[in-house]
Every structure is written in structure tokens, then in C-alpha cells.
């Protein structure tokens, strides 16, 4: 403490969690747009009440569910399951190399750019729209559904795989490289061990998602239980609709249980 400390200009005190005017303006704009949009659709309380009573009648006709027409139900559900499994297997198989090629920490820009674009393209359209496109291209049936869900899988887990690879520790990779290992061996020993359990997680998640979507692509003619569901709606066969919905829920729950088991097996 010898002598006076030289005077220094202190930075201004900034309170935490402060909002800028731009942020406030964004909130106001968002609220204003929500009100405007609601006004556009004539969303009134009375309209909602009418909808509710209609819904109650609809629900009443759904119960008790009727499993009398079980044959198309079983056939459609099995087809959905096949679509989901095949789409997941092919989708994951394609996503592994694409994810690696998209990883900006391992690949040069001229490789990652086209790979990332392809993955982004796969993600751009909703699976239902892709399914319609494939129905037009390859005709009605499960093939269109499988192709649509392969595209959806690549769009989703291709990106997640790439992100997982981009988050690895490069120190471990550096050590494997230093041993004189080839690129393939660096991937096998330096990269894969770091991402494998996350890949299993993404893969099983995608299977869950494909199982859900495979019950829906049938609505546009791409195979599976969706077609059965749609025609039951058309015939106002609401007790059969209820039976189909209960079956779908049961299959999804069983699927999730199975994927949890799968995850445990691979993480051991």
C-alpha cells in the first residue's frame, strides 16, 4: 500500500438479467401477433363450448371399443412394425457415414458442406409430405412408407450423430493419431468409443419415433395401420377407431420398453 493507486476508469455496473429494448420489443410483438392470429380464426369461447359438446358425442360413440374386425387391425399393425424396423435399420446405416462426413472437427469443409446439406434436405419436409411424394413416385404401399421414414431418420439422427462427433474430446483422438494409426483405426479407437453409447440412444429414440410415424404414413397411402384407421374414420366406425388407437398405444408402450432394454444391453 505505498502511494495512492492510480485512478482508473471503472466499467459501468450492469445489473444481471437485464433486458435490452430489442428484447422487450420482441416480447410485445410476439404477444400482439398471437392476439391478431386468434382474431383471424374467430376463436371465441362459444365456439369452444360447441366443439366440446361435439367432442363428447364423438367420445361416447368410441366406447366400448370393438375388436370384432381384428384381422385388418393385426395385418395393418404388423405392417407398421415392419415399416418402422426396416426404416430404422436402413436409416441408421445411412446416418452413420453421413454423420461422420458431416462432423466439422474431423472432416474438411468441402466434405462437410455437401453432407450437411443432404442431411438438412432430409429434415426439411415433414414425413407426411415426404410420404406423399414417395407414394406418387413408387406407388401405394409399404415401400413408400419405408422410404419416407428412411429420409426422416437420416434427417434427424444424421444431424445428431454429427453433433455427437463434434463434441468428442480431441485429446483422445490426438493420442491415437500419434501412435501412427490410419484414419479408419483412429475412428474405431479414438472416436467410436466416445460416441457409441450416445449413438445407441439416438438410434433407439429414432426407432420410437419411426414406430409412431409408421402408424401415420398409411393415411396418405404409404402402408401400415394408418390406412385402416383412415377408412374406419371415413365409415364413422368410431368403436373400431378406438380399438385401433388402443392397439397403437399398446404397441408404442411395448416399443419404448424394448428400446430401454436395448439401451441397457449396449451400455453394459
Amino acid at each position: 500500500m505505498s502511494g495512492a493507486a492510480p485512478l482508473r476508469a471503472q466499467p459501468a455496473y450492469l445489473p444481471p438479467f437485464r433486458q435490452s429494448n430489442a428484447q422487450r420489443a420482441a416480447f410485445v410483438l410476439l404477444a400482439a401477433y398471437a392476439l391478431y392470429a386468434a382474431a383471424q380464426f374467430d376463436l371465441t369461447w362459444a365456439r369452444f363450448i360447441i366443439g366440446l359438446s361435439n367432442g363428447a358425442r364423438f367420445l361416447g360413440r368410441m366406447f366400448p371399443p370393438s375388436f370384432a374386425n381384428w384381422e385388418p387391425l393385426l395385418k395393418g399393425m404388423l405392417e407398421s412394425l415392419e415399416i418402422a424396423v426396416l426404416a430404422s435399420v436402413v436409416g441408421i446405416a445411412l446416418s452413420l457415414p453421413l454423420g461422420l462426413l458431416s462432423a466439422r472437427n474431423l472432416m474438411p469443409a468441402w466434405v462437410t458442406w455437401p453432407a450437411r446439406s443432404l442431411v438438412a434436405l432430409c429434415r426439411a419436409l415433414h414425413p407426411v409430405i415426404v410420404a406423399i411424394l414417395f407414394v406418387k413416385a413408387v406407388g401405394f404401399g409399404a415401400l413408400a412408407g419405408i422410404l419416407a421414414l428412411v429420409v426422416a431418420s437420416v434427417g434427424f439422427i444424421g444431424k445428431l450423430f454429427a453433433e455427437a462427433i463434434e463434441e468428442i474430446s480431441l485429446k483422445q483422438v490426438e493420442a491415437v493419431r500419434a501412435s501412427g494409426a490410419s484414419f479408419a483405426n483412429v475412428i474405431t479407437y479414438g472416436v467410436l468409443p466416445q460416441v457409441f453409447s450416445r449413438f445407441v440412444g439416438f438410434g433407439t429414440y429414432q426407432f420410437d419415433s419411426n414406430l409412431r410415424n409408421s402408424t401415420m404414413v398409411g393415411i396418405v397411402g404409404a402402408g401400415g395401420i394408418g390406412a385402416t384407421l383412415f377408412s374406419a374414420f371415413q365409415r364413422f366406425d368410431y368403436d373400431f377407431v378406438c380399438a385401433i388407437l388402443l392397439t397403437i398405444i399398446a404397441v408404442i408402450v411395448i416399443g419404448e420398453t424394448l428400446t430401454n432394454v436395448l439401451k441397457k444391453v449396449f451400455r453394459a
Binding site: A175, V176, Y189, G190, P193, S197
Partner: peptide, 22 residues
């Protein structure tokens, strides 16, 4: 810079990766 999720033995064998095929 060990590969954390591999065993000690696998980490040691990493030292031989330059000598074996993919």
C-alpha cells in the same frame, strides 16, 4: 489422453494400431 471408455488393455493396444489393418 487415454481413450476413457476403453479398458486399460485396449488403450495399450492402441499403441499397435499403426501395425494392423482396419
Amino acid at each position: 489422453n487415454l481413450v476413457e471408455r476403453l479398458t486399460v488393455m485396449e488403450n495399450l493396444l492402441t499403441g499397435r494400431l499403426g501395425t494392423i489393418g482396419p
